[in-house]
Structures are given as structure tokens and as C-alpha cells.
Design a protein around this nucleic acid. Structure first.
Lengths: 245, 245
DNA sequence: TAATGTTAGTGGCTTAAAGCCATTTAGTCT
DNA sequence: AGACTAAATGGCTTTAAGCCACTAACATTA
């Protein structure tokens, strides 16, 4: 290896194109609750490779526009949904020689949680079509592009696991919600029933919600409406929700 | 954008060098308990950039040799410590325009836990020197290369947090250990005392250890020696260790 | 306007797993 | 043999969950 006298000298002669480098992309699972089901956003690929297959939304880093990886994820999210920063979390990174026919490739997986009512779907040049798919269907029906089934599974696992000991699901609801609605999103994600009293104690004792003063009325007793005290932040409970015994 | 008739045609005309791509590397925090302290392995950089600074061990993916990202991490670990697969976990990925003077760069952070007695340190061409540093000193004394202080902090946080609800620390001990030794590694990592009875109940009820039949003797009552039932796997407890009230 | 239906919200007990602290046990050392 | 030390356990308290039945507040219907 050549030895350089100064960092300046080293950098001026350095070119990334002298080396073999992998592709790097960002892929994301955007979750929302629609029709009382946990759904995830898919796009249909407009170009090769895997043209015509459904895939998680994602793409390459724009070295000019994005100053961090999170920026790339935010941009992708905005492009597809028009939504800005609801809840975005990096889940993990997979990289392998043969996961993409173009060569060694690395992808950073993110998950986003959004309230369905805040979304306006829009396709861009890289996708023919965009749709919401119920999560429980995904495992059975669709074979996604690349290793996106596996990446989706990582995200789904992360979501389910964090729901057990954090207050994450508040990010799936619109700003005002009732405790019953919140409980219901927990139940939908965990796919199990949650005991009402325990749930309310847990959430209220954690001091993460505040009453808005408004009520949700219907053909029965009105329910207090709450909002999250700190948007985006999620509370860690000392124990997991346990579910029925 | 050009449109291709077939995937073959697309791939044959595809070259990664036509695009701006970021650098990708792997960096790792290798933890061990030495002299009753949690320590982390650092290397001194032999080349530009950041020549002469201490850094987390790591480097670029070898597109020929490594077939997955985990392979890269394993290889780096082996190069520095001679150890093979004790406990390796991906922690997260940071990427930004200006974290490396060579350009947009992405690094995948891993953490490894190893038993001190299993290690033979060895430098390779990319490092002048290798040393163990107590974790509590790192925050104060050393300004590491690049954003490695921040990356190390991610790993350290992950370690501390997982110790609260998993059996991770078994991976820091040699094959046979006493319950008191295990408790001690928990205490060192958490930097707090743990109640003996609670700790033993928790660990033994979890059914993750088995007696080896041997005893550790000293100038007092001998202690039973245990080993982890399943190496590498860590148990999830339903609650966190709480520490003194 | 009174009865009925429906969901919101609470009271009060049980249970699981943690904390606390004192006591017993099994060795070595002097 | 008695002192010393760390291992191991007994037994109570506390915390946060589960369970389930009850009351509360509204709209709808008869």
C-alpha cells in the first residue's frame, strides 16, 4: 500500500471508484391501521430488476440531497405518503452478495407508523402502483421482490415486540383518541385480547397521555379523548403486557 | 431513463460505477470484562484518514470473501482477537454525508461479547496498536476517530439495556462460572448492585443454566459451577431487573 | 318518559415476580 | 475448636399485572 505524507495528499488521490463497493439502499415498512387491520404499504416495481413485483418502498441514497440515512428514509416516506416524520425507526441492516442481481448489496430497513387519515398515496417514477396490504395476508399471498419478505418480517417482529413494552401504538392514531381506541390498536398488533382494567391502569399510571377535554360521543356513554403528551417519544413500561393466562 | 426489454439486457448494461455510491464499512464494539471492569477493544489507525487516532475495529466489506454483512463482522472480530462467534449482534447503522472525509459513508455497528481468557490480541496491517480500555474512561479521556464515540455509545446503550431483561452476560464468562460471578458481571455492566436472592431466583427459574457438577473452591463454602444450556442464545425475562429501591 | 341496549369506566380481589433482610451452610484458616 | 468468609435459602413485603363483576352515562326505542 502506498504511504502518504499528509491527509490532504491521501484524500486528493482517493477515489471510491478504485474499489469494489456494494450498493446501498433504504427500504421501509410503513404501517397503518386501516379497517381495523394492521396494513403495510407496498409498491409495484416499474423497472428492472424484479420489474412488476410488489416490494417495500425504498431506494438509493441521494448523495446530494440526503445528508443522513434518516433523511433518505424521510424522503422515501414523504414521496409515497405525503406524510412527514410521524414515527420512524431504524430496524436493521441486511447485506449479502446475492440478494440483488446487480451485485453485493446492503439495505437499511426502517419502519414507520402513520395514522391512516393523514395519508395521500402517490406513486413516483420508480413504481407503477401503490397499495395497502393487510399484514396477515402478506405472509401467505405475496412473494415480494428481493428479500423483502424477510425484511418485512424483521420490521413486523420489531413492531410486535415493542408494542409489548412501549407506548408505540399512539403513533398509529390521529391526534385525539379514546383509551378504547388505543387498546384496540394494541390488540390488533398483538393479535390477542388485552384486559381493559390492566390496560387503562398501565397507560394512565405511565403519565404519557393528557385529556384533551373533549369527548367522543356515540349511542352510548361518551368517552374521554386523550392525546400523547410527547409526540414521537415512546414510553418504556417496566413489564410486558402479558395477555390472557 | 432508458427502458430495457429484458432483465438480462438491463443487467448487462448496469454498472455500479455509473452512480454515486457511499462507502460502506463495519465497525464493532468488542466488550469483555477484565480486572472486574467492562472494557472495550480499540485499535490505533495506521493510515489516513484519522491516522494515529484510536478507533473501534472495523473496515470495509470484502466483496469477494464476505458473503454477508455478518461475515464481515465475524472476519474483523477474528482478525483482532482470534475469537470465533461468541456473541455478535448488529446494533445499528449510521450514514451521513460528512462523517468521513472521503465522502458519504455508511457504517454498520456491531457489538461482540467475549470472555477475556479466550483472546489473543493481534494487530493487522490497518492498525498500529491494539488495547483494551475501560468503558467508563472512554467517555472522558479519548476522542475517537470519526464518529466512533457516538457509535460506541450506541453499542454501550444497547448492552446496558439488554442486560436488564436478558441473560446476555453469560457470553462474557468462560464456559463454567458460579452464580456469584454471573451476578457480578450484571452488576459491573449495570453499574449498580443487584439483590442476591432475586438474581438467583430469576436466573434459576428461567432454566437457562445447568450445573456442571463441578465446584469452585476457595477459603470458604464452595460454589456450584454452571454453564449456559444454549450457547449464544439469550433468554428474555418477563420483567427488568429493577435494582435497589 | 321509562325501559333497554351499549360502551365507558371503576372496585376489589388474586397472582407473578421482584425487593429486602436475616439465617443457615460448608468450607478454609489460625 | 472457634473464627472467618462466601454460598445458599427462608420468609416476608411490594409492585404491577390479570380477572371479573359492577356502576355510569349516553342514545334509542317502545
Amino acid at each position: 500500500m502506498t504511504h502518504y505524507k499528509s491527509e490532504q495528499e491521501f484524500l486528493s488521490s482517493y477515489s471510491i471508484h478504485d474499489f469494489d463497493v456494494p450498493l446501498v439502499s433504504v427500504d421501509m415498512s410503513i404501517f397503518s391501521i386501516i379497517d381495523d387491520e394492521l396494513q403495510v404499504l407496498l409498491v409495484k416495481r416499474a423497472d428492472y430488476p424484479e420489474k412488476g413485483k410488489w416490494a417495500l418502498p425504498g431506494g438509493f441514497i441521494d448523495l446530494k440531497q440526503d445528508s443522513t440515512l434518516d433523511d433518505t428514509a424521510q424522503r422515501k416516506l414523504r414521496d409515497k405518503t405525503g406524510v412527514d416524520t410521524p414515527y420512524l425507526e431504524q430496524v436493521g441492516t441486511v447485506g449479502a452478495m446475492n440478494r440483488d442481481p446487480r451485485g453485493w448489496s446492503v439495505t437499511v430497513a426502517y419502519m414507520a407508523l402513520i395514522a391512516a387519515d393523514s395519508v395521500v398515496l402517490s406513486k413516483d417514477s420508480s413504481s407503477e402502483d401503490v397499495k395497502w396490504v393487510p399484514v396477515f395476508q402478506l405472509a401467505k399471498l405475496d412473494k415480494l421482490a428481493f428479500d423483502h419478505n424477510q425484511i418485512f418480517e424483521m420490521c413486523h417482529e420489531r413492531l410486535k415486540s415493542k408494542v409489548q413494552y412501549t407506548s408505540l401504538p399512539v403513533n398509529l392514531l390521529s391526534e385525539e383518541f379514546t383509551l378504547t381506541e388505543l387498546q384496540s390498536t394494541f390488540e390488533i398488533i398483538l393479535d390477542t385480547s388485552v384486559e381493559k382494567k390492566s390496560f387503562r391502569r398501565r397507560v394512565l399510571d405511565a403519565d404519557i397521555l393528557e385529556e384533551t377535554g373533549n369527548m367522543k360521543t356515540g349511542s352510548n356513554r361518551p368517552a374521554k379523548l386523550y392525546r400523547a403528551k410527547e409526540q414521537g417519544k415512546d414510553h418504556l413500561f417496566p413489564r410486558s403486557i402479558e395477555g390472557p393466562r
